[in-house]
């Protein structure tokens, strides 16, 4: 490659890297500003309680069937995997303990969050994105109604409250799934499975998983609100916002899963 062309090529790569870095920082800055505004608007929590209840229904109650369905199979897979890995190495009484720790610490909170990110996070981004491109958010502004307090804060609160509730249900159902596999497939007794659960149950495992799910709920709601409120253009923009919301949530859930696990389960 001639020297001049080589310099131009390198400059273009550097420019692209620089521009992408600036864009990334700007996006993160805007997301943190939104998070700050939502936190400040928490003082209106009782004034917008009906919106919060509506969002809790959407986030929690409507998500329950898909979360439970995923959870029962998650528990069953955990049972099959644990039995396979323990074969010939560990006595079967440990099966309940292995499944319960995997479910309470990791599988329950993380898989619930990923399922909810796909369902609710996408829904939030699509709804707010459509409101943005059809000037409904501007209409709220012109009516002297703060979109942060009216639209974003109720979703944030619903996420923070309902994600742990869903996780508790998911944990329970996943343990039932694990029990089904243990009894029907592995061939251990219910009593042995329950003993494994009981003897190796640590409150810290349950609480740690629930603390994670609070953060995951906040991530899902904030990502949906941020990408929805930043939507530009028409249907294409709404589609991009929806995709970005789910991808951002999924990546952040996994990153925060590590950070919180490293903090709680040291």
């Amino acid at each position: 490659m001639p020297l001049k062309l080589n310099i131009l090529f390198q400059r273009s790569i550097l420019e692209n890297i620089g521009r992408s870095t600036i864009d990334l920082f700007q996006e993160w800055g805007a997301a943190f500003i939104l998070l700050g505004k939502i936190s400040l608007s928490l003082r209106h929590i009782f004034r917008n309680f009906s919106q919060i209840l509506t969002q809790m229904m959407f986030f929690g109650v409507s998500s329950l069937p898909v979360v439970l369905f995923s959870a029962v199979f998650t528990g069953m897979v955990a049972g099959v995997q644990a039995a396979y890995q323990m074969q010939g190495l560990v006595p079967p009484i440990w099966l309940g303990a292995g499944i319960s720790r995997a479910v309470l610490i990791e599988l329950g909170p993380v898989l619930t969050a990923l399922v909810v990110a796909g369902r609710v996070g996408a829904g939030i981004a699509a709804e707010l994105g459509t409101m943005k491109v059809t000037e409904q958010i501007d209409a709220l502004e012109t009516m002297a109604i703060d979109p942060v307090a009216y639209l974003y804060m109720p979703r944030f609160v619903a996420g923070a409250v309902m994600a742990p509730v869903l996780t508790v249900f998911a944990n329970f159902v996943a343990l039932v799934g694990g029990w089904l596999v243990a009894v029907l497939s592995v061939g251990i007794s219910s009593q042995m499975y329950m003993d494994g659960l009981r003897f190796h149950f640590h409150t810290r495992d349950l609480v740690g998983g629930i603390v994670k799910s609070v953060f995951f709920g906040i991530i899902i709601a904030t990502s949906g609100c941020f990408h929805g409120s930043a939507t530009e253009g028409g249907a294409e923009g709404v589609g991009k916002a929806t995709t970005n919301s789910v991808v951002t949530s999924a990546v952040l859930i996994l990153i925060f899963d590590y950070i919180i696990s490293a903090w709680i389960f040291r």
């Binding site: 059809t134 000037e135 409904q136 209409a139 709220l140 009516m143 002297a144």
Partner: peptide, 14 residues
């Protein structure tokens, strides 16, 4: 803004 009203092009109904 409480003293102003606005009709949007597409009505912008919620």
């Amino acid at each position: 803004r409480k003293r102003l009203g606005m009709l949007f092009q597409g009505a912008a109904l919620f």
